[in-house]
Design a protein around this nucleic acid. Structure first.
Length: 259
DNA sequence: AAGTTCGGCAACCGCCTTGGT
DNA sequence: CACCAAGGCGGTTGCCGAACT
């Protein structure tokens, strides 16, 4: 099931992720978040593209991600969502906590597409019922009813899960304050669920508001590239100790400007 | 038992959108 | 307004195990 890994001309690794790579990526994001996907692999000691790292995180390593079989309720909801949204996998993922857009897409292609086709055939083969005028089953009402049903399905599903997050929401999951043990407690998940990024602290790493003053001063604000200059693919792979200590001194150095 | 086909899914690719300059 | 970089999304590919012959 795994793709065998290989390196492209730029020394970027492709294919299946090893456990070691997973651990590095997980540990890095849990400790520092993902402030820049393109630069992240360098700091995490991975010879992967940023895109690849992002995908691996979003689809597989995110602590809230659910693995394993889809429930009947989830499948039913996907069918309804697909009817309503079409191939908007990421939008669909917003209604299915813990499921990635990729997973939903795969599920659709492997199982649900057939089921949807079957369902359609059954509906089409059903004889057309004659409607009494007093039933007032206008087209408008039918649409309204299906919307209501759809809304109810979503409410039921969300009630079953403590999270109502989406892959899109969680892709901005660059929280700080997680421990680096690699384990994820329910507290962590709750923290994540309740987390609302109110500032751009991590997305624009360590650049304080008074940047003008700092730039004019003799001190210079460190940026990640000040710490590491990988010139070859080989040099991008660094020891964890080095990475963590580099990052820590980077934070420490810039902290004085932020206070 | 060996070969072939099929199903499932992780990962890649290329395009589009968005935000910054 | 144009350009560029980064992130995000949907389509597709490729690998592997299971099922079938």
């Amino acid at each position: 099931m795994m793709k065998t890994s290989s390196f492209d001309n730029n020394g970027v690794k492709k294919g299946a992720w090893s456990e070691d790579e997973d651990n590095k990526l997980r540990a890095y994001i849990q400790r520092y978040g993902h402030w820049n996907w393109r630069l992240l692999p360098k700091f995490a000691g991975l010879s992967r593209s940023g895109k690849s790292c992002r995908l691996r995180w979003v689809n597989y390593l995110r602590p809230d991600i659910k693995h394993g079989n889809f429930t009947k309720e989830e499948e039913d909801l996907i069918l309804k969502l697909h009817k309503k949204l079409g191939n908007k996998w990421s939008e669909m993922a917003a209604y299915l906590p813990g499921r990635s857009d990729n997973e939903i897409k795969n599920r659709w292609h492997t199982h649900l597409k057939k089921r949807a086709k079957k369902d359609r055939e059954v509906i089409e083969s059903e004889p057309v019922r004659t409607v009494q005028p007093d039933q007032a089953t206008t087209k408008e009402n039918l649409v309204r009813n299906s919307d209501l049903e759809f809304q109810q399905d979503i409410e039921v599903l969300l009630a079953e899960s403590p999270l109502s997050s989406s892959s899109t929401n969680l892709s901005s999951y660059w929280f700080s304050g997680f421990d680096s043990s690699g384990s994820t407690s329910s507290d962590d998940i709750l923290k994540l669920a309740n987390y609302t990024p109110a500032e751009t602290f991590w997305t624009e790493p360590f650049l304080p508001d008074n940047i003008d003053i700092i730039e004019s001063s003799s001190d210079k604000l460190l940026v990640p590239s000040d710490l590491v200059y990988p010139v070859s693919g080989q040099e991008m792979i660094m020891s964890d100790e080095f990475l963590w200590s580099s990052m820590d001194s980077y934070i420490e150095y810039n902290d004085k400007f932020i206070d």
